[in-house]
């Protein structure tokens, strides 16, 4: 077993001009669903996955649907509980195993270190778009006015008309909801970002904005793990491709 305090840095990752430290270390990860309401059916999704992601690096998860890309991403966020293995994330000066950490620890990692853009926005009744976006930043201690200002900047960049900022997104279109969701995910400069098909329902113009946001995040040193069905987006942001079925990492 590797010592989580001293992650080994492989030679290939130090070939860049500056040394890039790993911030995600997945070790021997396995996940099987057991469906008790359906006669105890067992659905193995993956097993024995290992993956290392460095700061400033973007890894795209690859494989046909049903191979467990979203399951892996959700496990990294601790939304799913993997049955075996470890997910070490660099959290400030510590390493936290998201597979075993206590709930309040996971929440702290999510608040400060780990952002996640899900495929669909979970609408909260009565909360306007601007505040949905500002919320993670405000929760981190930024004052409300500053958080709202950053939220407005992101909403404007993602072409959400100003008239909609004060409205709760329940009535927004799919693409508009997705853009609010992306703005929320990028409101905090998280060291680690998980993206589940962030451009799925976006037009070309907004896709380009999202590509820029991801590149900017990488440039400031964020590690990004994402599912990108769009070849153009994947080519534009991904440094490496991780095949969830075989567990192989390719440049």
């Amino acid at each position: 077993m590797n010592d989580p305090q001293r992650p080994s840095v492989q030679a290939s990752e130090t070939s860049q001009t500056e040394e890039r430290l790993p911030v995600i270390r997945v070790e021997d990860l396995g996940k099987t669903f057991t469906l008790h309401v359906q006669g105890g059916a067992r659905i193995p999704v993956f097993s024995g996955l290992s993956l290392q992601v460095a700061a400033g690096e973007c890894v795209a998860l690859f494989g046909p649907s049903g191979t467990g890309k979203s399951t892996l991403l959700r496990s990294l966020y601790a939304n799913y509980k993997p049955g075996q293995g470890h997910i070490w994330l660099r959290h400030g000066e510590d390493w936290v195993d998201m597979a075993t950490a206590a709930p309040h620890r996971v929440l702290a990692v999510r608040r400060e270190t780990l952002g996640y853009v899900s495929q669909f926005l979970r609408v909260i009744p009565r909360i306007p778009a601007r505040d949905i976006v500002a919320e993670p930043l405000h929760a981190l201690g930024s004052d409300l006015a500053a958080a709202r200002q950053k939220a407005e900047g992101l909403l404007a960049r993602l072409n959400i008309p100003k008239a909609m900022w004060d409205l709760a997104p329940a009535t927004f279109s799919g693409g508009e909801q997705q853009r609010v969701n992306i703005a929320r995910g990028f409101a905090v400069d998280y060291p680690i970002l998980l993206l589940d098909e962030p451009t799925a329902s976006l037009d070309a113009g907004n896709r380009a904005v999202v590509i820029d946001l991801i590149r900017e995040a990488k440039a400031r040193g964020a590690a990004v793990v994402g599912i990108f069905h769009d070849d153009e987006v994947r080519a534009a942001v991904a440094d490496k491709i991780f095949d969830v079925q075989t567990g192989a990492l390719a440049a």
């Binding site: 469906l35 959700r74 601790a78 939304n79 799913y80 509980k81 996971v106």
Partner: peptide
Amino acid sequence: GLTDQVLDDPHHPYTQ
């Protein structure tokens, strides 16, 4: 467990 974990990946037959 964590709220979203229990609701999105419930393990116990009753929770499911």
